[in-house]
Amino acid sequence: MIHLIGPAVLAAALAGAGVYGLLARRNAVLVLIGAELLLNAANVLLVTASALPAGGLAALPPSGVLIQPSSDPLLPGQVMTIFVITIAAAEIGLALAVVLLLFRQRGTADLTAVRELGEGSAGYTETPGTPTASDPAAGPARQAEVP
């Protein structure tokens, strides 16, 4: 017998840690660790839901009553958890390929160093397509596409 407060607090703590990791980290790989924690917070709730009887919280008998209600034969909570784990594996494979590409192009995995699209950077223009002083190589090629 497990109080449902436990999984609820655990999921909230994992989600909070995940959001902190997503926002506070600069290294791209460590940002992805925060995303994994967020996905796992969702998984904890899904597995907890699979321990509930069919019909969810409303069908749960009041505490103290020891009857064992039947669970959903499709086990949606556990199946969804396995689906989320699969999607997380697909996501991290693709995301790490992007990080490796970034490292090969720029020699860094630091997200604050990649600010070409930020308004404060030297290469930023309000009108994409017009060459800027700091971007002479890309300028003429992009200019040629615009009639």
Binding site: M1, I2, H3, L4, I5, A8, V9, A11, A12, A13, A15, G16, A41, L45, T48, A51, L52, L57, L60, P62, S63, Q68
Partner: peptide, 15 residues
């Protein structure tokens, strides 16, 4: 998350 979930589950237990 903790606030909404704690209100939702109350003091129910699951076995």
């Amino acid at each position: 998350l903790a606030g909404t979930l704690l209100v939702a589950v109350g003091d129910r237990t699951v076995s």
